[in-house]
C-alpha cells in the first residue's frame, strides 16, 4: 500500500463511522421489534391453548428456516410489488426484527419454562390473575435467566445488520464497498477496519450485558450461558 492509499484509507473512516451509525439504528429497531414480538410469542406458546400455540410454533419454524437474505428481499421487493412502498431501512428492521423475534421467543420460552410452573401456581394461589402472575412473578425471573443466551442473539443480529446493504441501505458495509470501488488496493484494509469496528461493538455489547446481568443477579439463581448461534 502506498502513502496515497493510506491517506485514502484514513479519509474513508468518517464515512464508515456515519455508516456504522445506521447499523446501530437498525440494530436497536430490530431488537425492539424482536423483543416485543418475541415475548408475545413465547407467552402464547407457554400459556395459550393448543391451536394458538401451534401457530406460534409455525411462526418460529418459518423465521428460523428462511435465510435473512431471502426475508429481506421478500419484505422489501415483495411488498413493493403489491404497491406497499417502504424504505429499505424500514424493510430491514421489519425483516431482521421478525426473524430475531423467532429466536428471542425461543430464548424467553426456555427461560419461562425454567422458572417453572410452581412459581405460577404460587402466584395464583395468593390471588393474582394469570396476567399479574406473568408480569410480577414469572417474567422478572425469566428475563434474568434470558440474559446469557440473549447476549448471543445480540452479537448475532449486530453482525446481521450488514445484510441490509443488500437491499440498498447505506450502512457501514455499503460504504466500505464504495471505498473499495474507488481504490481496489484498499479492499483488505477497509474491510479489516470494518471488522475491527464490529469486534469493538461486540465486546462493548457483551460488557454492557454482563454488567446488566450482574446488576440484576439474584443470589443462588443462575443459569449457564450456551455460546450457541441459535
Amino acid at each position: 500500500m502506498t502513502a496515497v492509499d493510506w491517506q485514502n484509507l484514513v479519509q474513508g473512516v468518517p464515512s464508515l463511522l456515519s455508516g456504522l451509525l445506521i447499523n446501530l439504528e437498525i440494530l436497536f429497531g430490530l431488537i425492539a421489534l424482536g423483543f416485543a414480538v418475541g415475548i408475545l410469542i413465547a407467552l402464547v406458546q407457554v400459556y395459550s391453548p393448543r391451536p394458538l400455540a401451534a401457530l406460534a410454533v409455525g411462526y418460529e419454524w418459518f423465521f428460523r428456516g428462511v435465510p435473512e437474505m431471502v426475508l429481506l428481499m421478500l419484505i422489501y421487493f415483495g411488498l413493493r410489488q403489491f404497491q406497499v412502498r417502504i424504505t429499505p431501512f424500514v424493510a430491514a428492521v421489519i425483516a431482521l426484527g421478525l426473524r430475531s423475534s423467532a429466536y428471542q421467543s425461543q430464548i424467553f420460552r426456555g427461560a419461562i419454562q425454567a422458572v417453572g410452573r410452581r412459581q405460577m401456581m404460587a402466584a395464583l394461589s395468593v390471588g393474582m390473575t394469570r396476567l399479574q402472575a406473568i408480569r410480577h412473578v414469572v417474567l422478572p425471573q425469566a428475563l434474568r435467566l434470558s440474559i446469557p443466551p440473549w447476549s448471543n442473539e445480540f452479537s448475532s443480529v449486530l453482525k446481521d445488520t450488514t445484510l441490509a446493504s443488500a437491499i440498498g441501505v447505506i450502512e457501514v458495509f455499503k460504504k466500505a464497498r464504495f471505498i473499495m470501488g474507488r481504490n481496489y488496493a484498499l479492499a483488505l484494509p477497509i474491510f479489516l477496519v470494518v471488522a475491527l469496528f464490529f469486534l469493538f461493538l461486540t465486546y462493548a455489547g457483551n460488557w454492557a450485558l454482563g454488567a446488566l446481568e450482574r446488576r440484576y443477579r439474584i443470589p443462588g439463581f443462575e443459569a449457564k450461558g450456551a455460546g450457541e448461534r441459535f
Binding site: K159, S165, Y184, L188, A195, L196, F198, L199
Partner: peptide, 13 residues
Amino acid sequence: GTPLLVQLFMVHF
C-alpha cells in the same frame, strides 16, 4: 466477532 459478509469480501476482494 465480525460479520460473515465482511469476512467473505476480505477473502474474495
